[in-house]
Amino acid sequence: MLLSVENITVHYSRLPALRNVSVEVDEGEIVCIVGPNGAGKSTTLLSISGVLNPTSGEIIFDGQKINGMNPETVARAGISQVPEGRHVFTTLNVEENLRIGTTIRNDRAEIEKDFKRVLETFPVLAERRKQSAGKLSGGEQQMLVIGRALLTNPRIMTIDEPSLGLAPNLVDRVYETLTELRRDRGLTLLIVEQSSERALKSADRLYVLRSGEMQLEGNTADLQDGEKVRQAYFGFEEGTPQEGGVTF
């Protein structure tokens, strides 16, 4: 297992945001965590990246315990996160944004090769190389942050809601790119997504997280009819309201 999150509990001040959550990602896999708003998806990714510190449980990356490490050390170990809301550096131009991605590397020749490769993958970034990153459109910014994360040469990339705020055709484009990256360079991906349809379409395996607890885990091939996922996602069967529940 490349990355395994083992029974972590995470608190925001004293409120638990995650309870005994486990996630595993194997080399070369695309794994999706889906769940409604406030389920704890981002909390999971931020814990993996060392931004949040679990109160119990362990996070093991490539045989090494990484919980308790600070974000830069986790990044240097080979986990690159594209956080929610993209976080481009708007005061930097496109090229500078990408160069920040190479901070942890010293292999100059390889960096230049990867840099060219990213510009080939995202031609729009090559066109706007010297432009302020704040002036890019939402879709272009998403390409930029994925390119930037790629330049860290990660062993696993985690992405928080790549579809947020993007038009549907752009979302398709982003996922196409991600699956191509896996195919062409064996990139391992852990993606957080609100849409379970999207996850079922693109991932190998899927986790459903709700109210800070893991509800379901499985191969997307076995879950294609979507019923089980919906049930786990909403907490009850569609059309059968519980006491005081709401019908969707």
């Binding site: 600070n70 830069e72 990044a75 240097r76 550096f89 930097l92 944004n97 901070t103």
Partner: peptide
């Protein structure tokens, strides 16, 4: 310089810079 660009990035979004490996 690399450090200078990193500093501008960190000034804008310190957490993101660290998540990209910039040593805070």
């Amino acid at each position: 310089t690399r450090a200078g660009v990193q500093m501008r990035a960190a000034a804008e979004d310190f957490r993101m810079a660290r998540m990209l490996g910039v040593r805070g």
